[in-house]
Design a binder for these strands. Structure first.
Lengths: 178, 178
DNA sequence: CGATATATAGACCAATCGGTCTATATATCG
DNA sequence: CGATATATAGACCGATTGGTCTATATATCG
């Protein structure tokens, strides 16, 4: 997963994968079939990791605004310094392969939907608790937030400073909560 | 430019470029040097187009909120249907090459800075006219907006429906203006 | 121990990559 | 017209791509 994450699909060559997996050529093909299948596996793991992380951060048992704060703090962390420059496998994959690879389309589209649903859930709970600013619709706010954080991953590729990122997500959240 | 836009840098092969430019191999290399130089040219043109468009949409002579509305409407348009699936050369380039290509780094970083400055200018003028919601800081709002629109370009690769995009940018703007 | 199954290294393959070069055609112009 | 400059098509180059295959080494196990 790491090597696809760092380099992208096309730019990752077989030797890179052999080095990363410490497998021989034959073993790798016996285990995973081909490069494309291996990539889909890596993507699936990346997605699963992201969703389970969200599930704990935005768990219904928690105070929703606090959960959102932590969720956004995670993005700040992943967006700073070397982490930021490394980028996001999902965003990179969306830009590189979406629209040309049906398997990728399904996974990327599904992830964004799942993410939006989780954020919308947290926002709805915040709304029920009267914590949202007046006139905020949880669902459209969730769509906005998804775009915002994925955009951070793009901009963070070239301007990864933690202080500004943190201030930006704080300012963002302030627009939506009481 | 179009072929890099549609396929990305690595995925664009020489034959693609020959077909797109209607040049022979020799002529292309005589005119542009190599693939990398040609790509940088295409990227420069893409950036220049985007900035001049912003300069007219967000011109100081115009009513700033109206300008921002038109600016965001442009993203809705570019994000819908086939346009959306095609994506954004800048975002794709940022994810594919930033951090591995110094020339690209400069251009992408410079573009985001330039974009942020233009949006911040429009927001400042709106603020001076008393049109911004209470507590909105033009600069950090500009940073948020840049992330938001670039994130739209990412999410739009898989979910390009115009109605939702328009509703989302409307809801977004509503959070920042009076 | 010897027999068998498994994993290894790496030779090998056709296809394609970016890039160069030459021989031919096509303009241009005195 | 003939001479010259330019652009063309496409052969060609070494390197690298994803993928296969075989010969060898290493376990496993009766």
């Amino acid at each position: 997963m790491d090597v696809f994450w760092s380099r992208g699909y096309h730019a990752t060559a077989l030797p890179d994968l052999l080095r990363a997996t410490k497998l021989s050529r034959g073993s790798l093909y016996a285990a995973f079939g081909d490069k494309h299948s291996l990539f889909l596996r890596a993507l699936d793991r990346y997605i699963a990791d992201a969703l389970t992380r969200m599930d704990t951060e935005l768990a219904p048992s928690r105070e929703p605004i606090e959960g959102l704060r932590e969720y956004l703090a995670g993005y700040v962390e992943r967006n700073s310094g070397a982490n930021g420059r490394r980028g996001c496998l999902l965003v990179a994959t969306a830009m590189e392969l979406a629209g040309r690879d049906a398997e990728v389309d399904r996974r990327v589209g599904g992830f964004f939907k799942a993410m939006e649903a989780r954020v919308a859930g947290a926002l709805s709970r915040a709304n029920a608790a009267g914590k949202l600013a007046d006139g905020v619709d949880p669902l459209s706010a969730a769509r906005i937030l998804v775009c915002f954080v994925e955009g951070m991953r793009v901009v963070g590729k070239t301007a990864p400073t933690r202080i500004i990122s943190q201030a930006t997500v704080d300012a963002f959240l302030d627009r939506f909560i009481k």
